[in-house]
Design a protein around this nucleic acid. Structure first.
Lengths: 110, 110
DNA sequence: TAATTATATTGCAATATTACGATATGTTTT
DNA sequence: AAAACATATCGTAATATTGCAATATAATTA
């Protein structure tokens, strides 16, 4: 049906899959990579950096903003986007805990 | 168009977004969570654990297998799935490096 | 070997995503 | 104020994803 059943998952599963899903597209990873590379926050040099039309970039930015991965500040005519460290840290923690649990029980059959 | 343009991204961006995308669904996170919880590798108790039809679970397992996040071993009539630690570790590293870079340049405008 | 159990595949309907042209909105410059 | 720039939104076409019933496949048990 194309519709994800959400009623049976934990809050955490839904919250994390939503954030992670936003990172599951190369254009959005490229945006994040670029925001990370240029020290200061960057607006739509992204449109020049990434080979996608401006509305498409805008749409991807919106998705990243929706899940809280980036923040945008109006800066005159343009908008200054940057990564929200707290949300990225949450994702980092998720995977760190993950690997910790994995390591604590070294009993894989495969 | 629904079709992702891949020709302009780095190998890494494509590789990681593909793996991460597979984790961007609550059912697949639930599968991974469950594989992590039960010490030994588990087959399709998943069908009982997760409130989705058997073909749907099978499909999600396939996606996780395709990106290498899990491996499956035939065990008599059933199949024993487990997490591939190496691939998860790669994801962990990605985010760790990420946060490292973020911390090294504390110059966010937002 | 027939029935049962475990899993995968096929086919399909409903919905979501991706991408972009056209256009709207808001700011700065002239 | 008009032109130019920066960004967002709308509408839409193409494609992908989600979920499942039906069915296929393969191993196990009776």
């Amino acid at each position: 049906m194309g519709v994800t059943k959400t009623e049976f998952y934990t809050e955490e599963q839904i919250a994390f899959s939503t954030i992670i899903k936003a990172l599951g597209h190369p254009a959005r990873l490229a945006i994040i990579d670029h925001l990370l590379k240029v020290n200061s926050c960057i607006c739509n040099d992204l449109v020049n950096e990434i080979q996608l039309a401006q509305p498409t970039i805008s749409q991807h930015l919106k998705e990243l903003k929706n899940v809280g991965l980036i923040k945008g500040n109006i800066e005159g005519a343009s908008i200054c986007y940057c990564i929200d460290e707290k949300v990225i840290a949450k994702v980092q923690n998720y995977f760190n805990r993950f690997v910790e649990v994995l390591n604590s029980k070294k009993s894989n059959c495969c």
